[in-house]
Design a protein around this nucleic acid. Structure first.
Length: 639
RNA sequence: GCUGGCGUAGCUCAAUCGGCAGAGCAGCGGUUUUGUAAACCGCAGGUUGGAGGUUCGAUUCCUCUCGCCAGCUCCA
């Protein structure tokens, strides 16, 4: 049979040769860097025999498939170590993740950090044994008997759920056997640097009614250098944690006495928020939105009409009774905007109508999901609702897409992933509405030449949507923006406009949020910048530092000039050494430090120091104002 | 909500076996008048998250509770 290496040689080899043999025959030396191979499109073990002509592509750690095989074998390595040390632990499942892996074990107690250390040590030792990893296939019945005999109840349960008639594969390394689709590395010796990270509880099959399993997370890399780099990145993530930075920089707090998931914005955090909101309002007014305000509570009936009581009740705070009627704290802003729309008779000439609001909502989130600023119970959405005719959907959505990218880019995000979510199983509305709206969304995305992915069935129950994820400075993805078409609410609230034909028609509603929640977006911003905000956002843009008491008045005068020019400036005229004041300003991540000693007073200047040490030289106050004006301009100029 | 871990001064963390609750930083007072990431001396700072229990005695052991953390589940 004929074997071709992708982008390489071609040769006839005997039937029955393995993938690895074929690679060797074609001059590719099988070091530990070759992990598996793609054979006619399917990822396979190097030990699999070949039975037909094939194109083979060797897979190394630099490919996503290679990494997956590597992590998958790593989790088997860990599982083998666990079985050797804790023979009564039962195997369940153990997949590879993005850059790590886990394995869930059924065991009568959680694994301790000490257990983890000994498991890790044992795993390294097993790697050194260089055990060959072999695939074997069973019939379904044989597989059930085999794993039953080994006492692996969970494996038996898994196999019982598999389709009949198809062979079932397992992988063996030494005495260890695991039910597994594969593929795997040729041997345990291929695993270089290996580290266990944490333990956690996890339900069998992710269902909280099922028994709790003991999950162990770990990661692995070919070399210690790569592992160390990965661990350093995890440290960096921890170092930038918005909860820590938010506290250190005195931006926000969440306090016991206030309640979980309820955020206090301290002056410095509020200063940043104010910049965000000012920018947002300014741009929305320019962008053809009308800004509105709505109250935090409304009669419960409003939420009955909107359907929230039926579909969203478990996420709502309990209602309160006042003067014989019930009132509800708002979980969303849409009903209010709808009622503003309904306050007049609308003409087709009025559409589209765009109402925007930084609307604070309250949602009852289960305690276990609360997380710093990223998941809270009270938050402000940068919400807007567009009311338009069906033929306007595409144009409106295109506008929103452009607007979203403009806003997000201004905050320093340049990497986006776009998802188009279609009709879910549980949903309302006529098919033609869904088709129309989905194709309008798709057309809007295409009109902007944006790469996107489908999320089939991922839409809201009332309509399809576009979600936009941003990538932060550490390469992590966050979903912030969402654009959702809604046919349900116009119907529920009986919205109408008078068309050209003089008859009433139902408008389409588009819900959209760009930052999502200000709290969440702020948390992401903190981590994106590691607390070192660009000058336009920094709570303090410049600090004037005097060297001795001689320059106190001068420092105060310079500060006053900066302030009256509209900059957020402070003077640090404490009786402290300049090194100490610089250190404090650095820790506070102030973009510009303006040092004033006798020399500067003489020349009417300040010595300008940038954040993290840059010496920008001596400047007059006028020059400093120019510098600040340039540096506090937003990343992208207003359109 | 579930499993596990953790709550000690404003912050970061100590306190042996159940035996007087401590340090650094921050704060305050003083000395120092300083040139680009930490001057020196002193003072003060606590219902050890809360409630109950065991004990002669609880930061330490037990029960409950609140909160935080990791993960699971959930997620407009």
């Amino acid at each position: 049979m004929n074997i071709t290496i992708k982008d390489g040689l071609s040769k006839d080899v005997q039937t029955g040769q393995t993938v690895g043999d074929a690679l060797s025959a074609l001059g590719i030396s099988l070091g530990t860097d070759i992990l598996a191979a793609r054979v006619n499109g399917t990822v396979m073990d190097l030990s699999r025999p070949l039975s037909e002509d094939a194109t083979i592509e060797p897979l190394r750690f630099d490919s996503p498939e290679g990494r997956e095989v590597y992590r998958h074998s790593s989790t088997h390595l860990m599982a083998q170590a666990v079985k050797e040390l804790f023979p009564t632990a039962q195997l369940t499942i153990g997949p590879a993740l993005e850059d790590s892996f886990y394995y869930d074990f059924a065991y009568d107690r959680p694994f301790t950090p000490e257990d983890l250390a000994s498991i890790e040590e044992r795993a390294r030792e097993i790697a050194k044994r260089r055990l060959p990893i072999a695939r074997r296939e069973f019939s379904k019945q044989d597989a059930i008997e085999f794993f039953r005999a080994r006492g692996e109840k969970y494996k038996v349960e898994l196999i019982e759920g598999f389709p009949d008639g198809e062979p079932i594969s397992a992988y063996t390394q030494g005495d260890f056997v695991d039910l597994c689709r594969g593929p795997h590395l040729p041997s345990t010796g291929h695993i270089g640097a290996f580290k266990l990270l944490t333990t956690a509880g996890a339900y069998w099959r992710g269902d909280e009614r099922n028994p709790m399993l003991q999950r162990i997370y770990g990661t692995s890399f070919p070399t210690k250098t790569e592992l160390d780099a990965h661990l350093a990145r995890l440290e960096e993530i921890k170092r930038r944690d918005h909860r820590k930075v938010g506290k250190d920089l005195d931006l926000i707090s969440v306090q016991d006495e206030i309640g979980p998931g309820l955020v206090l914005w301290h002056p410095k955090g509020a200063a940043i928020r104010l910049q965000i909101e000012n920018f947002w309002r300014e741009q929305h007014i320019k962008g053809g939105y009308e800004l509105v305000y709505s109250p935090h509570v409304a009669r419960l009936d409003l939420w009955k009409t909107s359907g929230h009581l039926d579909y969203y009740r478990e996420n709502m705070f309990a209602s309160m009774k006042l003067e014989g009627s019930e009132y509800q704290l708002k979980p969303m802003n849409c009903p209010y905007h709808i009622m503003i729309y309904k306050s007049h008779l609308r003409s087709y000439r009025d559409l589209p109508i765009r109402y925007g609001e930084l609307g604070t909502v309250y949602r009852y989130e289960r305690t276990g999901v609360l997380h710093g600023l990223l998941r809270v119970r009270g938050f402000t959405q940068d919400d807007a609702h567009l009311f338009c005719r069906p033929d306007q959907i595409e144009t409106e959505v295109s506008r929103v897409l452009d607007f979203t990218f403009f806003i997000l880019q201004t905050f320093g995000f340049t990497d986006f992933e776009v998802f188009l979510s279609t009709r879910p199983k549980e949903s309302v509305g006529a098919d033609e509405h869904w088709t129309l709206a989905t194709s309008a969304l798709e057309a809007a995305i295409k009109s902007r030449n944006i790469a996107y992915r489908m999320d089939p069935g991922g839409g809201a129950f009332y309509g399809p949507k576009i979600d936009i994820k941003i990538k932060d400075a550490l390469g992590r993805s966050w979903q912030c923006s969402t654009i959702q078409v809604d046919f349900n609410n116009p119907e529920r609230f009986e919205l109408s406009y008078i068309g050209e034909d003089g008859k009433a028609h139902q408008p389409i509603m588009i819900h959209r949020a760009l930052m999502g929640s200000i709290e969440r977006f702020f948390g992401i911003l903190i981590e994106h910048y590691g607390g070192a905000f660009p000058a336009w956002l920094a709570p303090v843009q410049a600090t004037v530092l005097n060297i001795t008491d001689n320059q106190r008045d001068y420092a105060a005068a310079v500060t006053a000039q900066l302030k009256s020019a509209g900059f957020r400036a402070e003077a640090d005229i404490r009786n402290e050494k300049i090194g100490f004041k610089i250190r404090e300003a650095e820790k506070a991540k102030v973009p510009f430090m303006l040092v004033a000693g006798d020399r500067e007073v003489q020349g009417g200047t300040v010595s300008v120091r940038g954040r993290s040490g840059a010496n920008l030289g001596s400047m007059t106050v006028v020059q400093v104002l120019d510098l600040l004006r340039a540096e506090t301009a937003r990343v992208r100029q207003d359109s």
